[in-house]
Design a protein around this nucleic acid. Structure first.
Length: 209
DNA sequence: CGTTCGATGCACT
DNA sequence: GTGCATCGAACGT
């Protein structure tokens, strides 16, 4: 039996070597694949755009932590936030131009039982009911925990290896542009792109009809 | 419905 | 010592 990892090629490096505002929406409806058994459709992303973007980690210049942003495109930038959550980005543009796409939510495809077990292992979920499928990878911290993405994946190429992104031909539907979430500066720019109305998108739920 | 707040680790100043 | 690109519980209206 042929796995999906074998059936689909990874998105090539050239895809990432473009303006991050082009790459971000095109990552929607592509597949993030971890290991051989966990995957999800990307439904929410944010663009972080260089040293002039106050919310970008590169805003204060190059440091030890943000060095991956200054490297070649098509690699993962993973960092620890709030001491609890690993966040995964795809580095874009070209070396020396720090920019990346934060992957904020997935619609789980393969490996749902494993994702659920990983989520249940979080200390704050002890004794709580299991989450529904569409909540497993809803939010950047939740998706890395469900997928098993960690700091060990930092700097890994997304074009090959255990952490890759594939195009399985899901058609792009309506894309909604919005302001980025959870940041204290730079909220005025509409650099968050989502698959409109998708129930795995994080943030406040759409109002009940 | 809304807002506030604790957990938790480490890069950065 | 400070401040997070978060999560989810607790509490107020």
């Amino acid at each position: 039996m042929q796995s999906h990892r074998q059936r689909y090629k990874a998105v090539p490096r050239g895809f990432y070597a473009r303006d991050v505002r082009i790459v971000a929406p095109e990552l929607l409806n592509k597949i993030l694949l971890a290991g051989d058994s966990r995957s999800g459709r990307i439904v929410e992303v944010e663009a972080y755009i260089g040293e002039d973007d106050p919310a970008c980690h590169a805003a204060a210049g190059r440091t030890v932590r943000n060095a991956p942003l200054y490297g070649p495109p098509g690699r993962a930038y993973v960092y620890l936030n709030y001491g609890l959550h690993d966040m995964v980005n795809a580095v874009t543009e070209k070396a020396g131009h720090p920019s990346a796409v934060l992957i904020r939510a997935l619609e789980p495809l393969e490996g749902v039982p494993l994702m659920r077990r990983r989520r249940a292992r979080a200390p704050w979920r002890k004794g709580r009911p299991a989450v529904s499928d569409h909540e497993l990878c809803r939010g950047p911290g939740n998706l890395t925990r469900a997928m098993g993405i960690t700091l060990a994946d930092n700097l890994r190429p997304l074009t090959r290896g255990p952490l890759t992104i594939q195009d399985r031909g899901i058609a792009a539907g309506e894309i909604a542009w919005d302001s980025r979430i959870g940041i204290r500066v730079g909220t005025e720019r509409p650099w968050r792109a989502t698959v409109a109305g998708h129930h795995s998108v994080s943030g406040r739920r759409s109002p009940t009809p």
